[in-house]
């Protein structure tokens, strides 16, 4: 069941479009904001609100990189693995994260604190390498500043 708050936030998005179904991405994001990820049950509930079938909504949910259809940790690290970041030292940053957190892509640390995911370019190639944690952007990274960034996220 969607909470009243979730329903209200999704219904606010309807105002932007002539058809409710256009709010699909935002509706998924609303639920993800409150529950960290989008479960099968949520898909059914949101689809009903949007007036589309759960399958249609799931085809949207699984299409986009930033919608999580599996549980994630309290904080999600998206590290840019595209060409400019790679050229500027992405691999050393990734290695540090993997060594430090003991997880690799697609995994969540055992304390549930971090999930590590790749992202296809963050549009900040002039400050490469870059990563994003829960929407906060960190740029011009070197392995030695990673730990102090991670400290902010418990």
């Amino acid at each position: 069941m969607l909470t009243e708050e979730e329903k209200h936030e999704i219904e606010e998005e309807f105002k932007l479009y002539p058809y409710k179904s256009a709010a699909a991405i935002e509706a998924l994001k609303v639920v993800q904001k409150h529950r960290r990820w989008v479960s099968d049950e949520s898909i059914k509930d949101i689809a009903q609100l949007l007036g589309i079938t759960p399958d249609e909504l799931d085809s949207v949910a699984t299409f986009y990189n930033l919608i999580y259809r599996k549980p994630v940790g309290r904080n999600v690290i998206h590290i840019c693995n595209s060409v400019s970041c790679w050229v500027m030292g992405y691999e050393s940053v990734l290695k540090h994260l993997i060594d430090h957190l003991g997880i690799t892509y697609g995994q969540t640390s055992s304390d549930g604190r971090f999930t590590l995911l790749p992202v296809q370019c963050l549009g900040t190639c002039d400050h490469a390498p870059a990563l994003m944690i829960n929407g906060d952007l960190y740029r011009d990274l070197t392995p030695d500043i990673i730990n102090s960034i991670l400290e902010k996220y418990q």
Partner: peptide, 10 residues
């Protein structure tokens, strides 16, 4: 004018 936010898809 409305802003439509994507969710990660080139």
């Amino acid at each position: 004018i409305y802003i439509h936010k994507g969710a990660g898809a080139y």
